[in-house]
Structures are given as C-alpha cells and as structure tokens.
Design a protein around this nucleic acid. Structure first.
Length: 534
RNA sequence: GCCCUCGUAGCUCAGGGGAUAGAGCAUUGGCCUCCGGAGCCAUGUGCGCAGGUUCGAAUCCUGCCGAGGGCGCCA
C-alpha cells in the first residue's frame, strides 16, 4: 500500500538526513486541503528539536534524500508551512486503490486480521425478562451489535451475549402481576402496569405457571424485537442457572480464599477499596440474600473462562457500577483491564418536538417495536449509530417517521439504488464487465472520479479506527462521504451516452462498481440494508 | 460534596495534536432535450470562559460556568 511505502521511504530518508533516533511512528496523513498534496508528513517538525536544526531546513534535507529516487506514484514533494513534507501523487495511485477495491469485493473490502482471532465476548441489552424492550434500549442494542460487527471485521472471534436477570423479587412481582391480569384483576401494589401484560395474560394457557410462562414469553419478545433490528445474540445466559450450578458459591469461596471477602455487621463484604473503590460493597445482605453484585461477579468469572476479552455495554445510569464491577473481577484475580465497560449516554426521545417520557410506568414509554414499525430497521439502526456514544442523543421519532431528508440513510441507500439502476442499463446496452487487464482505469481523471477513489481509499483506515475506538459512527460518517462523492459524480459524469467513449464507459462502470463495493461493505458493517430499488 | 460524559453554524451532529474547522436540516438563489431531482451547485465573521503544555490546541492538562447521568445491605 502507498501509505506504508511512503512511510518506509520517509524513514530511510530521515535517517540519512541525520535524524537519530527515528521516531517510533512516522506520521503520514491526508491534508485537509487539496493544495497541500495527497499525503503529508510532520517528521521534520516532530524531530527538528532532537536533530538541532530548524524544521524547514531539516525538511529540505529529508526531501533531498527522498528525491534521489522518488517512491512509486510520487510526482513531487514540497515543503510547506512550518516544515510539512507534502507528497503530490499521480492519479495512478488511486487507480491502484480502485483495482484493489474491485478485487476485494464487499466480502473482504476493509476487513483485516489484526484481531488475530482474539475471542471477545460482548454483552449488551441484558434487559430484564419481564417486559418488552422500549425505545431506551435501542441505542445500546444497536451499538453493541455494531461493535460486534466491527470486531468481526477486524479478525476477532465474537460472542454476542445477553444476561438474563431471571431471579429475584422483580420476577416474582412480574409473575404476580401476570396472574392478576389473567384473573382480570388489577395488578398488585408496585406491580407491572403495562398493557402488554393484558395481552400476555390472554395468551397464557390456564394451567401455565405465570412465572415460567411469563419469563419465556418475555424472552421471546426480546428475541423477536431484536431480530427485527438484525440483532442476534449467541448466548442467553441465565442468572438462575448460575445460582443452581453453585457458581455463585464458588465465586464467593474464591473471594474468601483470596481474602477479598469478609464478614461484618452480619453481612458479607467485597474488599473493593483494594481496587480503587471509595468503599467496600455488600455481597450478601444481613437477611442472607445476595445483592446484585455477587451473582454479577460469578457471571463475569464465568465469562472470563470463555473469552480473552470482555466488553459490557451499559447505559449512563449504570456508570456508578463500573468501579465495583472491575473491583469484583480484580478480586477474583482477573485482570480488570480485560473487562472493558462502555457507557453509552442516554437518549432524549421526542415525538414531533415533544419529549416522550422514558421513565416511570411502561404506559409512558415507547416500545422499541413501535419505533421499528414507524421508521423501519434501517433508519433505526442508521440513526442510533450516527453519533458518538459519548454524547447525549436527541431522536425525534415524528421527524424520522416522515422518511424525510432528516434521515441520511436514504441518501446513502439512494446512491446504491442508482448504481444498481446504472448497472442494469449498462447490461441492457451490452456493456459487459471487463477484467482487470482490459479496463482502462487511467481514463478516470475527472475531479469527481478522483474524489470517489480518494474516499474509497480511506475505508480500510476508517474500519480499523472505528473498531479500535469502538466507534461505529465513523463508518456512518464515511458512508455519507462516499454517497456524496457518488452523487456528485453521477451529476457531472455520465457513464453512458453517445458522446461517451466505450472505453470511458467501461472505466466508469468499474468505478461505480467500486462505489457499490464500498457502500455494500460499509452498510453491512453497520447492519443496514443496501436496497437495489427504492 | 465527590465521580463520569458532554458544551463546535439558527437546529442535529462530524472532526479528538497540524497548515484556510466540515456535513445534513433550515434560509436564500440557481440547475431537468440527457443514466432515478430521494440529486447537483452556490449561500455562513461558529470551537462556553480563563489560564497552561507545545514549533503548533476545537483536540492534551488545570480551574470556572452550563447541561445530563451517577454516588443504597435496590437491580
């Protein structure tokens, strides 16, 4: 790849110019402005102090070394600003990029093996199995799945996991509420109010055990809703079985053996202050019941035995548990660094500008199914992935439901549909796809064509960065760029026509095929479909 | 009080050490004899404030201001 070639050449040149030692990494980036060339390096700026020269003078020395034998594709090298070294390349480097895109096809374009088969377990959603998922679950659900896709695309072995809190008081309360509905009564004090229970009660056979039947029904509900969003968990892990298998007691014993658990005031405590927590935490309450923490520790103990690295996706309202969870696994002797807890900021849900309440009884909430009904899986996924998880997100369901231009997913999908339409027309006109040897990509020199290839060239870096930073929104941003580049090309450069030379038509068909590969690959990475017609 | 995240254009958000800070929506005005107008082009005195680190800060550090979330023998 051109990037590595230039970095290598820079390293050699800098060494010959007296830079010693060479920096750990030589930075090479794409300048924001086209006037600054195709690639730019700051080595001279970064190392001038150690060499004892002013940056521009050092840059001149390095450039002189580089000019002894220009690296492939390089047309000229300039020194600019305070001492940047700017490379101006011939378009041939982009033709080479396009060739590699066509070669890769959507199945492999942008993918890498950097994860080296590391087994990552990512746990997300994990909503209680006693009521349907609501809109507030959307962000974490879609995000978790997108991160899983990114990790898979970068050579990790991924397990998607859902933890079921299927024991405890809330399950009993749920069963009681369901049974009451079945009898046509109002739910008990503090019970589950939602209308869904009326429907579930109607479905429930008379002789069914409300707890077991309701639990199963809720899990089906979760799976169905998630399935509509193309989210499929590999493992549904039951807290109940964890207790039944004796794993909770084993974990507790392990903590005791390591002197990380102690008894005080009639309760059993975790020595979490050993791991930076501001106080120790209760594992077993005075009444003998576990707190949520102990089964959670046992659960993570089990996960550590099944994967190299753990990721938990939690909402912002759980951020206070990060320290004690890490303390818990640390107390077991595991490396807390292998447990990555990602906090997603909350979502403000609006409907036509008006706030939709996310708290309180279910009656006030919007079911996730309703969101999918209103705006579809594609728009839902695209929207919830379009911004960083570190920022609070505002989503207006009303605006999205209109399928208006407020949602760029259509802009991206439209690009794909146009390409499909072009291909069909081309086939009709008898333009057959040509092999690498006979297509003349050198004909692609229009500004719009160049721009499209430049965007395509960035995709592998985007995927790598998005995966490393757990930031699928970077893929969304890139897709919008590619779609914009394509639409601009489509407007200014006709693929077929009386005044278009056949060779150019074939070259442009190759180019839009490259765009198609990019769109399909990118959309697949975020789990959004690439429709052939809209 | 302490902890976490955020503060970028009228609105929703990208950009997370580089050289002139970008997109969508909204506004205003252009572009259909021609591959799908769900499109293209033009239109903007914006990085909360103050210090610091650096050759260079929207980006890193500190403080302040503002918004949201969290600090249970609840889950």
């Amino acid at each position: 790849m051109i990037r590595e070639q230039l970095i290598d050449a820079l390293g050699v040149a800098a060494g010959n110019a007296g830079v010693d030692p060479l920096p750990a990494t030589i930075e090479l980036e794409r300048p924001a402005h086209r006037d600054h060339g195709d690639w730019s390096s700051n080595v001279a700026l970064a190392t001038s102090k150690t060499v004892g020269k002013n940056p521009r003078a050092l840059a001149a020395d390095i450039v002189a070394e580089l000019e002894r034998e220009l690296p492939a594709h390089v047309e000229s090298i300039e020194i600019a600003g305070p001492g940047f070294i700017n490379f101006r390349l011939a378009d041939t480097w982009l033709h080479e990029v396009l060739e590699s895109v066509l070669d890769a096809q959507p199945q492999t374009f942008g993918r890498s093996a950097t994860g080296d088969g590391t087994h990552v377990n990512i746990e997300f959603v994990s909503a209680n199995p006693n009521k349907p998922l609501h809109a507030g679950h959307a962000r974490g659900a879609i995000y978790g799945d997108a991160v899983a896709r990114l990790l898979e695309a970068t050579g990790h072995h991924v397990t998607r996991e859902f933890y079921l809190n299927d024991r405890g008081v809330q399950m009993t309360l749920f069963a009681d509420s369901l049974a009451a509905r079945k009898r046509g009564e109002t739910v008990p004090e503090g019970g589950y109010q939602g209308d869904y229970l009326v429907d579930w009660a109607a479905e429930m056979p008379d002789d069914a055990d409300p707890l077991e039947w309701g639990y199963e029904r809720a899990v089906i509900s979760h799976k169905t809703t998630l399935g509509r969003l193309r989210i499929v968990h590999d493992v549904w892990f039951s807290e109940r079985t964890l207790v039944a298998d004796g794993q909770v007691e084993e974990a507790l014993q392990q903590l005791r053996d390591r002197e990380m658990a102690f008894d005080n005031d009639g309760a059993t405590w975790l020595r979490s202050t050993e791991f930076g927590d501001d106080k120790d935490r209760v594992l077993i309450k005075g009444d003998g019941d576990y707190t949520y923490l102990l089964p959670d520790i046992a659960y993570h103990r089990d996960k550590y035995s099944r994967a190299d690295k753990l990721i938990n996706v939690w909402g912002a309202d759980h951020h206070g548990y990060v320290t004690r969870m890490k303390a818990g696994v640390g107390a077991l002797g595991h490396d807390p660094a292998d447990l990555e807890i990602i906090i997603t900021q909350l979502v403000d849900l609006l409907r036509d500008g008006e706030e939709v309440r996310m708290s309180g009884r279910l009656g006030d909430m919007v079911a996730l199914d309703d969101v999918v009904d209103d705006i579809g899986a594609d728009a839902t996924r695209f929207t919830f992935l379009s911004q960083s998880m570190d920022t609070r997100q505002t989503v207006d369901l009303g605006a999205l439901a209109e399928k208006s231009m407020d949602n760029p997913v259509f802009y991206v999908q439209y690009a794909h549909a146009r390409i499909h339409s072009l291909r069909a027309r081309a086939a009709q006109a008898g333009h057959v796809a040509t092999d690498a040897a006979s297509r003349e990509l050198a004909l692609l020199t229009h500004e719009r064509e160049i721009e499209m290839m430049r965007v395509l060239s960035e995709y592998p870096d985007v995927v790598a960065l998005a995966a490393r930073e757990r930031a699928p929104h970077k893929v969304i941003t890139w897709l919008r760029q590619l779609a914009a580049a394509f639409h601009g090309f489509y407007h200014d450069c006709h693929v077929m026509g009386d005044d278009i030379d056949t060779a150019l038509t074939l070259a442009r068909l190759a180019l839009i095929e490259g765009a198609r590969v990019g769109l399909v690959a990118g959309l697949d990475l975020v789990g959004v479909s690439a429709p052939e017609a809209m």
